[in-house]
Design a protein around this nucleic acid. Structure first.
Lengths: 226, 226
DNA sequence: TGTACATCAGTGAACGCGCGTTCACTGATGTAC
DNA sequence: TGTACATCAGTGAACGCGCGTTCACTGATGTAC
């Protein structure tokens, strides 16, 4: 067993860690060129391997992209989980989760694009509301860390233990996720207005989330019977 | 001047309305197959024309997609403007704008994908916050209907004339847009959770927007000095 | 310790395909006389 | 009213390219004896 020297290193006939290297290359190219601009030939070339070698590890292009998306959901869940378990008050930790989400989308555009642009593969259950990568059982036994959406619901319950006056926490969680996703994608597309007097995306999300949490019930009451 | 018989009709050597027909075909295929899955050959074939004919009307593929995006922003502005000027109370009209946005994204996925997935063409100023298609001057003189984002800011000011206690209406407008965009894109990707006890996207947006409007200031106060 | 062997990750050449784009050409059209 | 002409929208063939995928083959590796 040869040692792994880095994702794009290569010594000798066998790569040693081709699968991981291909995933990392795909992630990089998707980030740079978008999901549609990513090609297997590019990834293979970066890794220093013939395109055909890819088929020893993946069924094809779609499977590679699906794996990138899968890893992305896993990584996002990890980051949200970490923020949820960080120090400080519950509100601080909750706020940190939002920042972690936006930072993830900005720092890992390859992951993010694969996660939310790819057509969901049939049978794959790894969306934000799926069982999540972390629940799948691997050779080292099932990992039960839960998924990103669960983390969000959990954070809402912990941060606002008084509840939301009967409103389902999942309702608010979906709102929060949608706002986060909207901010992240508009920002990534360069369509989030910026300028003096306008808030940055972190401020935008923080204020928005708190408004959603505090205003949900009031808004509901005002439009009751509509 | 021959009469136009429908976008995909064709009689004789000259098409008569090829430019419009190509735009409509592109919109349809982008809706069906995504921006990356759309090809000029498909569009030309549907319209009943050689691919080369396209170059009489567009510089290339990118220009055609940009035109679709352009039309999309125009159409969206029209729909929002119509909702804004509809009957009923200010709040009803405001709510109707949100519904119009989600309906547009659902009914016109070709437009929506072109608008928000396409890389912005340099020189083109037709994003949600750009000058907008409607302000461009055409042969019949400048149309000054304004753009979609302006409509939103205007609706906020009209619906809540008491203001937002010093908070810039644009701030709230961006939040509302981001939430709308997030809900629309998650829904389009099939990643909006659905089920008994969970709200549909219209309810989600309506409650969320009202929460954003009413909760913005409270949220800001709570996190002041952070 | 040395050797034969099974395994299988990666090779390299080739495939069929469809893409966007170009080019000289053609034929329908409307207009000037 | 008829005819010559300019215009230009669409043709059709071809281009170079790069894609994802396949296939029989090869050579490095670890293991059994």
């Amino acid at each position: 067993m040869r040692h792994w020297r880095g994702p794009f290193d290569r010594q000798g006939y066998h790569h040693g860690n081709l699968k991981e290297a291909l995933i990392e290359a795909a992630q990089r190219f998707i980030a740079e060129r978008g999901l549609g601009g990513f090609t297997l030939a590019d990834a293979a070339k970066l890794v220093g391997v013939t395109p055909a070698a890819l088929y020893r590890h993946f069924r094809g292009r779609e499977a590679l992209v699906a794996e990138v998306a899968f890893r992305g959901f896993d990584e996002l869940a990890k980051r949200l989980g970490k923020a949820l378990q960080s120090e400080g008050t519950a509100l601080e930790r909750f706020t940190r989760m939002g920042e972690a989400y936006l930072a993830f989308a900005e720092q890992e555009p390859g992951f993010y694009a694969a996660m939310f642009s790819a057509k969901p593969v049939d049978g794959a259950d790894c969306g934000p509301w799926g069982k999540g990568a972390s629940e799948k059982s691997g050779p080292e036994g099932p990992r039960t860390a839960g998924n990103a959406f669960d983390y969000l619901v959990q954070a809402l319950s912990t941060t606002f233990p008084e509840g939301f006056q009967g409103v389902d926490a999942r309702f608010i969680a979906i709102e929060v996720w949608a706002l986060s996703h909207g901010i992240a994608t508009l920002d990534a597309a360069g369509q989030l207005p910026k300028g003096p007097g306008l808030p940055d995306k972190y401020e935008l999300l923080r204020a928005g989330v708190l408004a959603l949490v505090h205003g949900a019930l009031k808004g509901k009451a005002q439009t009751a019977g509509r």
